[in-house]
Amino acid sequence: MNDVLTVRGLSVTVRDTALVSDVDLTVGAGERVGLIGESGSGKSLTALSILGLLPEDVRAGGSVRLDGVDHELVGADERRMSRVRGRDIAMVFQEPMTALNPTMRIGDQITESMLIHRSRTKAAARTAAADLLELVQLPTGTLRAYPHQLSGGQRQRVVLALALANDPALLICDEPTTALDVTVQALVLDLIVRGVVDRSSALLFITHDLAVVATVCERVLVMYGGRVVEAGPVNEVFTRPRHRYTEGLLAASDLESTSRRLTTIPGNVPPAGRFPSGCVFRTRCAHATALCEETPAWTGSETEGFACHHPAGVADA
């Protein structure tokens, strides 16, 4: 089967500042892939580039291709992109109200989105809307509700129902549960995973939460400073990290350790445009040498590898 999403050499710039550089990313059919990194790493810009939703002054370069869509998505006009969105790709963002119309009943919003992208009869769309609400475990009465009558978690479930309405080949979720309580998060995560598994949809799941991505995804890409610094199966990357940033991130999140002091990464994520040349992590890396002033090459395959001159997990590292 063909890969659903193929991103090659994606770059995002605003005026003369590079925000995302040279990102390669492939999502296979039905695969669940995570994109992780601290805030300011370029995760959302990567997602918005794929969706053709970058703000006015921000430019994407490189290539984004989607299986079954016969044109390049980078630079495609809004008319073509709006057809792709909602039919081939669907999305769920952190803030559900960005996707909901505050003045429209939930049921009308779901049926409308199904009628725009699919030739269904109105009656069929109505029945399908009720089924979708059932899928996200909301009572049928929700069809008649307005968004403001729902809690944050209920709204996010409506957005998920909308996103799944047209059986997208790819669902992109950007921090979908970050604003939710942990018990609500558990339900929404499970609905997302079951939603994509039942439809054989692929999933690109963006989060800063390592434990969430490990629970949801099979493969993961780690971003820092607008670059993918490491990629691989969740079990590999999280148990035998190679890039020093991945290693540091795992140590800093290890709240299970019995020691009261946590291992930290010194300093902060720099603002855009202030990352060093060469390895973007070298200003915070304990292993940096003069060699790290040169951009480290990618070692490994496209789906599994890292970009580090002095990787972890080598005997004499």
Binding site: V182, T183, Q185, A186, L189, D209, L210, A211, V212, A214, T215, V234, N235, F238, T239, L250, S253, D254, E256
Partner: peptide
């Protein structure tokens, strides 16, 4: 609450 908390150990 406890069972809803995702942890790396559990996931792995």
């Amino acid at each position: 609450l406890v069972s809803a908390i995702p942890t790396l150990q559990r996931a792995l």
